[in-house]
Amino acid sequence: MTDRTRILLLLGPALVLVGGMVLSALGLALLRSLHLFPVVAPDLSAYATVLGSPGFLASLALSVWIATVSTALAAALALALALLLRRGFPGRGMVAVLVQLNLTVPHVVGAIGLLYLVSQSGAFARLAHAAGLIARPGEFPALTHDPYAIGIILTYIWKEVPFITLILLAKLQTLGEGHEQVARSLGATRWQAFRHVLLPQLAPALAAASALVFAFAFGAYEIPLILGAHAPEALPVAAWRAFTDVDLTRRPQAFAISVLVAGLGIALLLLYARLTLPQRGRHAG
């Protein structure tokens, strides 16, 4: 058997199954958004309606806001946490275990837990009441179903900080402390060693993890469904609502939204590929 055949045989099932499903799904969504399947007459009206509606633009803006803020804060906090966990302190093992355990908690659980924790009548509001800070729930800051999507962002931070931290810890483990120690011995301050030696080495892993987080926070449905305000809706919620609307004419619009999101996702994918995939060579991780 030649290498070529061997590679084909090894890759075949994965390509046919997942490649097939992904390309068919994208293709079908594109056809449906253009009124091409079932064949009516190709037109761009769904895109015109979607792009021309203030609701879509508000939803897009909200989802970009949620994904950007969640990713930025989660990345910064995760960097700090990873550096913290690299050092020794009492209880470090415990924190490390909790970080790993968080990874196993589904997002929907986190969203509902956070709702019961930070809503205006939630556990924190009750503590504030007990401390004499507020009298009525309405006096507690609105952190859920609020215009800034704070509850949604908090959920993502809660879930994604451990995720990014674990990636960074793995990277730190492979890097070791050698380079930093050399820099320190050459007179660099602790900050300089971090800024000019460690951070550049961590950057690709951090950026790749952030891209995954951004894509997820942009495209997830159940978290904004549970914690979002009535308007504007996050893009996935708006798309699903258009898709399940009993008015069939809204379906091409739903597919149009999904194609637009896919476009953004493909841009993200190319960025991710630049950051993580080697141009050539055997290494694939």
Binding site: S119, Q120, S121, R136, P137, G138, A142, H145, D146, P147, G228, A229, H230
Partner: peptide
């Protein structure tokens, strides 16, 4: 209205929750 009408509950469950907690 609640929250000066800037936000409305999205479901009757949310309204029920507001009622249960005296909001």
């Amino acid at each position: 209205l609640w929250r000066e009408g800037a936000t409305y509950p999205t479901t009757v469950t949310q309204l029920n929750e507001l009622f249960a907690n005296g909001e």
